[in-house]
Amino acid sequence: MNLKRIAVLIVVALELRLAGQAHAQSSVTWYGILDEFVGYQSTKVAGKSTTLVALGNNGELTSRWGIRGSEDLGGGYHAIFDLESGFDPGTGAVQNAYRFFDRQAWVGVAAPHGEVRLGRQNTPMFAWSGNLDAFSAATYGSGYNNFANWLGRVDNDIAYISPKLYGTQVELHYSVGGQVGTQAGNAVYQAGVQSNIGPAYLALAYLNAANPTNSARVQEIMAGANYDYGWGRLYFGFFRANDIISATTGNALANPAGKYNPATGVVGNVAGNYHNTYSFSADYRFSPFLSVGAGYAFITDSSSLNNTAREFSAIVNYDLSKATRLYAVVSRLNNSNTAQYKMTGASITTGAFLTPDTGQSEAGTQIGIRHLV
């Protein structure tokens, strides 16, 4: 029996034991998401017109399972934790073979004046990006997600999350670099604020990540808003990043500082130019169950390559229940000069998307289903 199977059996046994011991002052919840789609993409690859039809995963949300819990410690204090693992429902394989709980793995204390969490955690940029896009910053259709390259989660992260005050909440994060003789090497610093003001939602987040020698830094800023006009929402998203983490010829799948996949290495040491992503989208609710949306996004490149791109998309969502949704997406992405941006969805695995030749356009369609457990 391999270590992965042993880990699964241990987690299941612990969950069942805790569930049996649960009482009014503590709780343990098992949760999950299943997301599968049939996708079609068309572009030029190696000079030839190429199409791809694939059964893919993680179109609108990343498939995952997790365990979260809370224990009442008295006086308004609670011990809290969350363990979350991504997987591919098409094959049953774990999303990332190099770590079991690849999404989140943290423990902390919630108090009247906020929460303190320790461990692997989502970044505010990742957690809030879906609020700034009619495509929830996912699917082939999200130009916001396809062009921007925010860091999704961070290891060894110490976070403070404030309580909401007049609809406003602040997050502060510091990821310990773990480098001998330096506190700055490989460290990640984050700050963010989100606010609900009547029908409007606003968000602003900043990230600064260093390489192990602190000789180069990734800097990212995300800002945006949405506005509920009664029958739907209007969305705006902005993202700016220096070019240390993504080639000026296309969007990268790896993340900075070796924090996501150790095999991809760390932040480079060549100072880069900046990319700015702008996203405009809206949706309309025909009923509580049926909505449609459309969007336009583009990216600018401050380097001499001037590798810009733009994307037009539309989406239909139909909720069969509170837990189950059908979705359909059509999209077209146009690259300029030698840009090679592609449609990558939420966290689609290799084989479910195409990378176009330099300067080539790409068309995509998805029909999918997601289920919340």
Rank of each mutant, 00 (worst) to 15 (best):
W65P: 08
L52S: 02
S85K: 12
G66L: 08
G66R: 13
V45A: 08
G92N: 08
L73H: 07
I80D: 05
G76A: 14
E71I: 11
T51S: 13
S49P: 07
A46H: 15
T91E: 07
D102P: 10
S85W: 01
F81D: 07
F87L: 14
K44Q: 07
S85D: 08
Y98E: 14
R99H: 03
K44G: 02
A79H: 11
F100C: 08
L61M: 07
T43N: 05
D82S: 03
G76D: 15
G66F: 08
Y77T: 13
G76L: 13
I80R: 06
R103S: 03
F100I: 11
L55D: 05
L52F: 01
S85I: 02
N57C: 03
Q104E: 10
Q104K: 10
G47R: 11
L83D: 01
E60F: 13
I80C: 03
H78W: 02
T51C: 02
G75F: 11
F101R: 07
L73Y: 01
A93I: 04
F81I: 06
A79F: 14
R99L: 04
K44H: 04
L61T: 06
L52P: 01
V53Q: 07
A46V: 10
S63V: 00
A79E: 10
T91M: 04
R103K: 12
A54L: 01
K44M: 01
V53T: 11
I67N: 11
L55V: 05
S49D: 15
A54D: 10
K48C: 00
S85N: 14
Y77V: 11
P89Y: 00
T62P: 02
N96C: 01
F100Q: 11
N96E: 14
R103F: 03
R68V: 05
A54H: 10
S70Q: 07
D72T: 08
W65K: 13
Q104I: 00
G90V: 06
G47Q: 08
D88I: 00
S49Q: 12
D102E: 14
G86C: 06
D72P: 04
V94Y: 11
P89G: 00
Q95A: 12
T43K: 09
F87W: 15
I67K: 12
T50L: 07
R99F: 02
F100P: 09
V45I: 11
G66D: 12
G75A: 13
K44F: 01
G66N: 14
A97S: 15
K48S: 05
N57D: 14
K44L: 00
F81Y: 15
N58H: 14
E84C: 04
Y77E: 14
G69S: 08
V53L: 09
D72G: 03
F87I: 11
T43F: 05
Q104Y: 01
A93Y: 12
